[in-house]
Write a protein that binds this DNA or RNA. Sequence first.
DNA 1: ATGAAAGCGCTAACAC
DNA 2: GTGTTAGCGCTTTCAT
Lengths: 339, 339
Amino acid sequence: MNKRVSLKDVAQHVGVSIALVSYVLNGQEKEKGVSPEMTVKIRKAIAKLNYQPNLVAKGLKSGKSHTIGLIVADISNPFFSAIARVIEDEATKHGYVLIIGSCDENAAKSRHIEDVFLNRQVDALIMTPAIGSQRQIKDILKRKTPVVLIDRYFDNLKVDSVRVENYQAALAGVLHLINNGRRRIAMVTYRTELLHFRDRREGYKAALAQNDIPFNPGWIVEGSYEKLDHDIATGLGQLLRTAGIDAIFFANNTLAVAGLKVLNALGIKVPDQVAVVSFDESEAFDLFYSPVTYIRQPIEAIGKEAVRMAIDRIQGSTADSRMMTIPATFIVRESSGSK
Amino acid sequence: MNKRVSLKDVAQHVGVSIALVSYVLNGQEKEKGVSPEMTVKIRKAIAKLNYQPNLVAKGLKSGKSHTIGLIVADISNPFFSAIARVIEDEATKHGYVLIIGSCDENAAKSRHIEDVFLNRQVDALIMTPAIGSQRQIKDILKRKTPVVLIDRYFDNLKVDSVRVENYQAALAGVLHLINNGRRRIAMVTYRTELLHFRDRREGYKAALAQNDIPFNPGWIVEGSYEKLDHDIATGLGQLLRTAGIDAIFFANNTLAVAGLKVLNALGIKVPDQVAVVSFDESEAFDLFYSPVTYIRQPIEAIGKEAVRMAIDRIQGSTADSRMMTIPATFIVRESSGSK
DNA sequence: ATGAAAGCGCTAACAC
DNA sequence: GTGTTAGCGCTTTCAT
C-alpha cells in the first residue's frame, strides 16, 4: 500500500515489459503497434494500481522540467501576486508548474534565485528584473534558458519583455489633472533607475511641458524602498506645507497609500485642496473618502503574454527578442476632480 | 560554451572518475580519502568549468526534491500572498524551493494541484484546504507525503496544522464593541462550512451571550465567494436600513472592504452611527476616514511554524499529528469608538 | 587513493 | 507485437 508504484510494477503486474506500458501511457499504442487487447489490459492495471508517473524521472530523461520560474520583487505585494496568479493560471493551462521567488529589488538575491531555479532545470524564467541584473540575465540567455522580463526592462539588452505604456499613461494622468485646472502638480516616485519609473517621470514632465508649466525638480518627492513611509512623510509633508501644491501624481499604489496617509495627517482635503492621480490600483483607493483616480495596469494581459512568449521560446522559437507594450487604462473617479 | 557541464565533463577534464568529483562536490573528500592534491585539482576544474549540479538528477537519485508545495485558496489574495512570502523565505532558508498553486476554495481543483505536485515529488505539502478535501488529504498522508494545514482545519483528521485562535479573537473583538456601548451588533461572514469561520461566529455569539444580548440569526449576513459584493450589498444594505444596527463585526478583510463600501454608499458614519471591527488587516483600513479596528493574524508565525512542521516530517518525524494554535493581536483604532 | 558499476524511473531506438 | 537496452546526471557500494 505504501511505496509509489512505478512503470516496472505495472509491467510486472501485467507480465509485460515496461516499454509497452510506457507506450500505452503516452498514447503511442497505435504508432508502436501494441495489440488492442494488451492495451486494454495495461490500461486496467494502470488504473487498478493507481499508477502515477514520476515527473522528476521524466524530466531527467527529457531535459524538460515543465516548470517555469517566476521571480518577482516581492510576492506579498498585491501587484505582483495578482500577476503571479494570472501567470499561474496560464502556466497550468499549458501543463506547466510555477516556482516562485522574491528578490526584493536586489540583484544578488535575484542571482541566487536564478541559480537555484536554473539548477532545477526550469524551462523558462519570467522575472521583474532588479537593477543591475542585466549581466546575469545575459548569462542565463547564453545558457539557452528563455527569459521574459515583465514590468521592468533594460535598454540594450536583447531579451523578450512585456511592458506597459508607462510614458503615455503618466502623460494622460497628468494632463487630466491639468485639464481639471491644476498647475502646481507634484510627483511622488521612487529614487530608482528602473526605466519604467523613469518613463512615468518623463510622462509627467511632458504633460507639464505641453502646457507651458515649468518643471520644478523640487516638486518631485522620492522615496526609498527601505523606509518608504518615513521618506514620503518627510519629503511630501515638507512640500505640502511650503509649496502650495494643488495636485499630486503618484508613480505607484504603494507610494499613493503612503502619500494619502500624509494628506490625511495634515488634514488636507482631496480633491478640494489637492487632487490626486495614481498609477496602479489598490483596494484602499475604493475606500478612501474621495475614491482615487488611477491608471489600471493590464495585469491579465501582461501575465498571459509573458507565458505565451516563454512557451514560444521553450518550443524552440529563435526569433529576434520581442518587446510587447500594452496600453494601460485610465479610471477617472473623484480624487482628481476640478476645483 | 553551450551545453550544461555535467559531472562527467569535470571528471574528463581532470582525467579522473566521476566518483571523485562527486565526493569533492559533497565535501566528502576526507571520509572518502581523496588526496589533497586531487581535491584541489578537482575544485579548480569545477570552478573553471562553472559546474552547476543538476538538481533534477540529484532528486531522482535521492528521492528528495527539496521542494515544498504550497496550495492556497488564491495567491492573489493579499492574506495568502503575505503568508506565501513568509513561507518562501523560511523554505529558502532551509534549502527548499516553493511551488505554488491556487485552488479557489475548490476541492476538485485542489485535488488536481495535489496530484501534479505529488507527481513532481514534493517533499511536503502546505495547504489551506478547501471544503470537502479531507478524503484526499488522508490519501496523501497514506502515501507518506507530509501535509501541514494552515488557516483552516478539519475536525477528526489527524494531520499537522497551524491555526489561529479564531474563537478567542472574535470574542474579544465583539466584547470590545459591547464595552463601547454597542448592543445591536451584526456579523458579516461567508456562507461556508469552513471551521475557522464557524469559530469566529461562535466567538461572536459567545460575546453576545456573556452580555445577555439575545442572538438574532437575521443579523448574520452571509456572502458567497462568487458574488461577494452583490451579496453583501444586498444583505447588509437591507439589514442596515431596517434593523437599527449600531455595530458590525466582519469575519475577514475582504468582507470588511465590501461592507465598508456599503456603509459609504448609504452615507452611514463610522463609528458614530455604526462601529466596525474586522478580522484580518488591509491597506484599505488605514486609509478609511475612520481607521478600522482589526484583529491581526500572526502571519509570520503561521508561515514559520508551518515550514518547521513540514521539515520536521520530511526529516522523518513520526510523532502524532500536532496542532499548533497561535493567538491573534487586537489592534484598536477609531472605527470601533464609543458613541 | 581511485575507479567501475548499479540503479533511481523513464523514454525510445533497436532487436527479435 | 513485444522485449531488451542504453542513457539522462547523480550517489554510493564495492573492488582494486
